[in-house]
């Protein structure tokens, strides 16, 4: 029942996106973003996030943006600007982006579909799949699939996890309280994930991170 509906919604979203891209290619609209400026910024993001935005392992892991939900991307970029989410690198990167640029970038990243970067321990994948789909009823850990979707593609402000770097996921969940939802006056979607980050044991986290990192 839920599955076909989700698909219809994402098809409709894709259709809207394609129409949007068409309008942009024709250009000439007042206030439209010059293509050259957009291409330069898009390339700049991919120096760190990987040539195809599949993620990159530098001195610390830089997340996959390819296929990510535009609403999630938008909310995170705003969160970096408003210091609801703290990260020294992305704070500077985000605060110079115009709304038109954010709009164009989030669409462009959503439309990329490279292979997952990989690199996670394969032997953890099966255990991770179980946690992702069933949670851990003994400690009231909900299935990740119930929010992130059965294929981990996310929806709206709930992020896609499919193909995300496992080491990035482990770091984010472990440091959640120090990095996300940092403005008490402005609670955000991070509070939905917070209790779950406390319930996951390190072993469960490593397993579920390995599992989703393999999904295309």
């Amino acid at each position: 029942m839920r599955l076909p509906r989700a698909k219809t919604v994402s098809r409709a979203a894709l259709f809207v996106l394609l129409c949007g891209a068409g309008a942009q290619a024709q250009g000439g609209k007042p206030g439209a973003l010059p293509d050259k400026e957009f291409q330069a910024k898009f390339a700049y993001c991919r120096t760190c996030h990987g040539v195809n935005a599949q993620g990159f392992r530098g001195s610390f892991p830089m997340p996959r943006l390819a296929g990510q939900q535009p609403e999630y991307l938008k909310n995170q970029l705003t969160a970096f600007i408003e210091r609801r989410r703290v990260n020294p690198v992305m704070g500077n990167v985000a605060h110079v982006l115009s709304p038109a640029m954010v709009e164009a970038l989030t669409k462009a990243f959503h439309n990329l579909d490279p292979e997952p970067l990989g690199g996670a321990p394969k032997e953890l994948v099966d255990a991770g799949k179980k946690i992702f789909e069933e949670g851990d009823p003994a400690v009231d850990l909900p299935p990740c699939a119930s929010c992130h979707g059965p294929e981990a593609k996310g929806n709206d402000q709930i992020p896609r996890l499919a193909g995300q770097l496992n080491d990035y996921i482990i770091r984010k969940i472990t440091n959640w309280d120090k990095e996300r939802g940092q403005d008490v006056a402005k609670p955000d979607a991070s509070s939905v994930m917070e209790p779950i980050t406390h319930k996951l044991t390190p072993d469960q986290l490593a397993a579920v991170a390995a599992y989703v990192s393999t999904l295309r």
Binding site: A40, G58, N92
Partner: peptide, 16 residues
């Protein structure tokens, strides 16, 4: 450490 975001200069620290 910070890059120069307005000029699309990446922060080297992220990788090096």
């Amino acid at each position: 450490d910070n890059g120069v975001a307005v000029d699309n200069v990446a922060a080297c620290i992220a990788c090096h």
